[in-house]
Design a protein around this nucleic acid. Structure first.
Lengths: 191, 191
DNA sequence: GTCTATAAATGGATAGAC
DNA sequence: GTCTATCCATTTATAGAC
């Protein structure tokens, strides 16, 4: 295996194990064993266990920027925001993005470590709240300017919308998420 | 110190440290040092480290039942649900209950361990979602029967309401929470 | 780049004195 | 009840051979 491949294997394995067991509960031997090398070999790529974690956070931080797409692209440029499309985009954000294999694993890792790692806490909040709400806000601003909605308060609409998304994400009740999105659409876009 | 006091000190200290550092990162020596005894003395009260954690979860599980009060008592029995009162109750749930010293610490501990402890995951979801939503649902059912609201779907209203609460809790934006609660009140109870 | 070997520290847990 | 002493497994990390 080439050098770069081994390094990536270490990071992917560490991410998976940290998210399942938590940082402290995973040893260098656990990671190396899963990768198929000896623990000491990890130190050729990373100077410490913390160094692996920091590299993961940094990687995650850059991924976060690629989030905007879905909601903005799907809703910000259509003629009329149909209910079915609105509901589809909302559910896709939960099932396709938040519960995506990669993103979901990252969120789990951050969630287990965020209380004792300020950087992890910041990235977690950005991924799950700050960025999505900011993106939704921009979309609602566009929709208002294009007179597709009557409510001018884009910031509040974005927080309300994301509240629905978060309840769907945490309770995993997709039927209720569907229903709440329909009700929100009716209220904001009109019957 | 009496036997019962020492046992409580161990549990309180363990809860605090588990919530700050995570279960695996806290050693028996860490806990005993904070309590002011030797690590071996803990084994007089608990047969293992896991035993402390399990005792905490069990304690937490019983506390959860005392949750109903706030929302139900405050809103389910008044003549008319005034906006100010509705907003006050919602904000009090976030600042007084979820961010309460004891409850908040418990939630943090559960959140760090829930992905590798099914019982912790269950209790966490109950405390933060299942129970509050169920309680809110019962209140909205009462309010509908008393013709104080026109919307019949109490389950959906409860999820929408709790979505607002959760956004307030996670983002810590109390001004936005205030605004969303006012908007919700206007929509559901009428201007 | 990956290995073996090992240092040095820390972990959970027990035995037995007081 | 709390202590000292200790066992034994496991941990992070390094040194140096290949």
């Amino acid at each position: 295996m080439s050098s770069i491949e081994t390094k990536e294997a270490i990071m992917n394995t560490a991410l998976k194990m940290f998210s399942e067991k938590g940082y402290a509960a995973v040893s260098m031997r656990d990671i190396s064993g899963e990768v198929g090398i000896r623990a000491s070999s990890i130190y050729y790529y990373f100077k410490s266990k913390q160094d692996i974690f920091d590299a993961l956070i940094q990687m995650v931080d850059s991924i976060t920027d690629n989030l905007k797409d879905g909601f903005a692209k799907a809703l910000g440029s259509t003629e009329k925001v149909k209910c079915e499309e609105f509901v589809r985009v909302g559910k896709a954000f939960v099932t396709g993005y938040l519960n995506n294999e990669k993103i979901g694993t990252i969120l789990h890792m951050l969630e287990t470590e965020r209380f004792h790692d300020p950087k992890a806490d910041e990235v977690w909040k950005n991924m799950l709240f700050t960025n999505p709400i900011e993106n939704a806000k921009e979309v609602f601003e566009v929709l208002y300017k294009r007179k597709l909605i009557k409510d001018k308060d884009a910031a509040r609409l974005a927080s309300e919308y994301h509240g629905i998304i978060m309840i769907g994400y945490f309770t995993e009740d997709m039927d209720m998420l569907d229903l709440m999105l329909r009700t929100f659409h009716k209220r904001v876009f009109g019957g």
